[in-house]
Design a protein around this nucleic acid. Structure first.
Length: 429
RNA sequence: GUGAGUGUAGCUUAGUUGGCUAAAGACCAGAUUGUGGCUCUGGAGAUCGUGGGUUCAAGUCCCAUCACCCACCCCA
């Protein structure tokens, strides 16, 4: 027999053994965000296509060729979210969150969808952790968001493997000036530019700075730098962000070529590249114009996204050890129908008291049941048979030491079990 | 879009210069109707991705095709 189909290209299953690690990493991120005053938001996986056209920017690659867009049965154009920010902004506005006062701090863990050629750590269904902050224009907000990102990497043990690169791409006013200068510069070298960059020249010259082709890259090095064209306000903002980061001991490099792929960014942009792993683990920036673009009042905003798939890959490469806790405290093996019923009832009782317990569900023999208990890492086992049912007592076996103790399986079973096992735990320490 | 790699038991893999019935682990059962890890025995499970070709003979070599995967391009 053959499986009728496999998981679609660019998707993967997170199965037991790995899902626990994902949860632990998610919890570290969520916890760190909450320490910083962020609250979780969950938004739909799909939105009206228009939202992404307006926010992400319709000349970006994401919008031009990577979106999963379709018409639903009601004739609406729907798109699976290719990133998390747009939905968060929409939800923030739609639910009137500004009424609760600024700043609004949100975080989320979501899956996003982009149709692109998959490779290691880059899938069509990608998982990301993101934070967004609204209503805070001060450079200290930039610093807090960046610091939050760095703290997460520190808690994940990746501090030495992740760097911080920052840049400022200014506001629309100073960027217009810069665009002009860039266009002039690159037009002089038009013949040398690659095909893609030639088309970028008209539409979005800043993207040329990001080009990986050696020729364009070399030209980009000598291109005018955005930092030389920042207006006074933007320049002051950037200076302040840098000095705040220095103040709290966060190292960074200024990368004038850092422009990010989405159109909505303004002023501070940053990434978390890793020289050790060769890929970036996340990035973000300020997007002071986006809220207004989507239909809200002008509202300063900023945020970042961390790529789960890359982070999990990095943790694996770094050889990070995750604690593995047994999910089963007690396994109750049974022989015969009466014993099986008793085991089933006891297990239910244990669950009501918060004890992880299990019994045979496959009708297996005693040996196989013990084997199973061993495999799932049960800390204790009890074997029930006719003898035990009759005497009302059974042997509680410590699977690590092999030690056995008589224990009542009557009314006082739970107390007896808890006393025995905690006593054993105390001994272990 | 460009280039490389992989495809054998619904899982992980071995399979030599082409050669007998394609092998092991994992899984299930038994060796002890009352106790896991070690050992032993047995069981089920494979049109060797698919199609063509070369050959007395193809899992193995050649061509095509599909799928997956990796590196580019691109992007976060």
């Amino acid at each position: 027999m053959e499986l009728i189909t496999k998981a679609p290209k660019g998707t993967r299953d997170i199965i037991p053994g790995e899902s626990e690690k994902w949860t632990m990493v998610e919890n570290v991120m969520a916890n760190e965000a909450e320490l910083n005053g962020f609250s979780e938001i969950r938004t739909p996986v799909f939105e009206h296509t228009e939202l992404f056209l307006r926010s992400v920017g319709d000349t970006t690659d994401v919008v031009e060729k990577q979106m999963y867009t379709f018409e639903d049965k009601g004739g609406r154009s729907i798109t699976l979210r290719p990133e998390g920010t747009a939905g968060a902004v929409r939800a923030m506005l739609e639910n009137g969150m500004p009424n609760n006062g600024y700043p609004i701090k949100l975080y989320y863990k979501t899956s996003c969808y982009r149709y692109e050629k998959p490779q290691a750590g880059r899938l069509r269904e990608l998982h990301q952790f993101g934070v967004e902050m609204f209503g805070a224009a001060e450079p200290v907000a930039d610093a807090q968001v960046i610091m939050l990102g760095m703290s997460i990497f520190e808690r994940l043990g990746l501090k030495d493997d992740v760097q911080l690169a920052i840049n400022s791409i200014g506001c629309p006013t100073c960027r217009a000036e810069y665009h002009k200068a860039l266009k002039t510069y690159f037009t002089e070298h038009k013949e040398e530019l690659c095909e893609t960059c030639n088309s970028r020249l008209e539409r979005n010259p800043m993207r040329i700075l990001d080009c990986k082709s050696p020729i364009c890259g070399a030209l980009a090095k000598n291109a005018p730098k955005i930092t030389e064209y920042l207006c006074d306000d933007c320049a002051a903002h950037f200076e302040k962000v840098k000095s705040l980061l220095t103040e709290v001991g966060i190292e960074f490099t200024v990368d004038p070529g850092l422009v990010r792929g989405l159109d909505y960014y303004t002023r501070t942009v940053f990434e978390f590249p890793s020289s050790r792993f060769g890929y970036a683990l996340g990035g973000g920036g300020r997007y002071d114009g986006l809220v207004e673009e989507i239909g809200g009042k002008p509202t300063p905003a900023l945020g970042f996204g961390l790529g789960f798939d890359h982070i999990m890959l990095a943790l694996k490469e770094a050889g990070t050890e995750f604690p593995t806790e047994s999910k089963c405290d007690l396994y109750i093996a049974s022989m015969g129908e009466a014993a099986q019923l008793k085991a089933f009832k006891l297990v239910g009782e244990l669950h009501r008291s918060g004890v992880a317990a299990d019994c045979d569900l496959c009708g297996r023999g005693l040996k196989a049941q013990m084997k199973y208990a061993d495999k799932v890492g049960a800390r204790y086992t009890i074997v029930l048979g006719d003898n035990e049912i009759e005497s009302g007592k059974a042997e509680l076996k410590n699977m690590k030491t092999g030690e056995k103790k008589k224990i009542s399986i009557g009314e006082d079973f739970l107390d007896a079990y808890l006393t025995e096992t905690t006593a054993q735990d105390d001994l272990a320490f």
